[in-house]
């Protein structure tokens, strides 16, 4: 079963997603993977990663790092060097970071085709694994007029969210720890 979870920043999405992923893995007796998508660029990012690692300590996750070309991790290894089992349970946190990595390249260029590319890849990822918890961020309800690239990023993320909400078996919004099930 694939899950799509979204909601505002710091609303308890990751915690809820971790529970869903862990419970699914336990129930089905499958390996449990945390798909780390952020590519650290400075000390602030590295500190955030350390904090997340500490938060997941004891949950039974094996960490897989993949910032771009997400499907290729299914043929790769975990950070501990174990081969990844594509039938495992994957917590993909987050779709937001993946789009950022694919759209705003480290060499400073911007790929306006990133959302289309990722839509295909994430659809393939959901199909291949069958047990993925996708986490995204609901960034569509503020009163601000953004410059073009940020607006394009918002439009692209919404494209991915809608595609995932369509193909996932369960769609959930987390608002300050409260859960709304849309599907």
């Amino acid at each position: 079963m694939n899950y799509f979870i979204s909601g505002g920043c710091k609303n308890g999405k990751s915690y809820y997603a971790q529970q869903v992923a862990r419970d699914t893995a336990r129930e089905k007796g499958l390996p449990l993977y945390y798909l780390a998508t952020m590519i650290p660029t400075d000390e602030e990012d590295r500190a955030r990663i350390r904090r997340h690692l500490a938060e997941r300590d004891g949950w039974g996750f094996e960490t897989v790092e993949q910032g771009t070309d997400i499907c290729s991790c299914l043929e790769g290894t975990t950070v501990d060097g174990n081969p990844v089992n594509p039938s495992g349970v994957f917590l993909l946190d987050s779709v937001t970071a993946l789009l950022q990595n694919e759209m705003f390249k480290t060499d400073g260029t911007i790929d306006l085709g990133a959302a289309d590319k990722l839509e295909k890849e994430l659809t393939e990822f959901a199909k291949k694994t069958g047990n993925t918890v996708f986490v995204s961020d609901y960034i569509y309800s503020d009163a601000f007029i953004y410059e073009d690239f940020t607006e394009e990023y918002r439009r692209g993320l919404a494209q991915l969210d809608k595609a995932l909400a369509k193909i996932c078996d369960q769609v959930v919004e987390v608002a300050y720890g409260f859960i709304s099930e849309y599907k």
Binding site: G8, Y140, S141, D142, A143, F144, I145
Partner: peptide, 18 residues
Amino acid sequence: DDISQGVVPMDKELRAWR
């Protein structure tokens, strides 16, 4: 569009809009 859930805008006109 629901524009009620972000940061309070710095701009006076956008605040009034919200």
